[in-house]
């Protein structure tokens, strides 16, 4: 059902945990849909220096969380923002069509952490694109 990469990131998820004194925290999803992801970021010199997550959800939600955090770690904040769920799914060698929404969770949680960071630093939050917004509203926390 899942690729080997999905199973690897599911069984040995990277970047699990919390960051004390995080610069930004984001949480999306709700128990009704069966998935919740919480992301902590540490930002230094406009670079995501560290990132940790906690996820309640199915195997693809956990694998997407793990892969997405790997992909944005060390990136400039704006580049991290540009990470799409499609790129996460591709990096995992694909997800079954019914599970694509699980990869949106990771994208959404990272966005929410980045905007939290921007808010804390007196910066204007960035706008989600329309499609993404509509999907995330369905999953509103």
């Amino acid at each position: 059902m899942y690729s080997e990469k999905v199973m690897d990131h599911f069984r040995n998820p990277r970047n699990v945990g919390e960051i004390e004194n995080a610069d930004g925290i984001g949480e999306v999803g709700n128990p009704k849909c069966g998935d919740i992801m919480k992301v902590y970021i540490k930002v230094n010199d406009d670079v995501i220096e560290d990132i940790k997550f906690k996820t309640f959800g199915c195997a693809s939600a956990i694998a997407s969380s793990s892969m997405a955090t790997e992909m944005v770690k060390g990136k400039k904040v704006r580049d991290a923002w540009e990470l799409t769920n499609r790129a996460v799914a591709e990096a995992l060698d694909g997800l079954p069509p019914v599970k694509m929404h699980c990869s949106l969770l990771a994208e959404g949680a990272i966005h929410s952490a980045i905007n939290d960071y921007r808010n804390r630093n007196g910066l204007e939050p960035w706008e989600e694109d329309k499609v993404h917004k509509a999907v995330m509203e369905e999953h509103a926390h």
Binding site: P13, V16, P31, K38, K54, T55, F56, I62
Partner: peptide
């Protein structure tokens, strides 16, 4: 559970 925000 250790990695679940819902459990937290």
């Amino acid at each position: 559970r250790e990695m679940s925000p819902l459990w937290e």
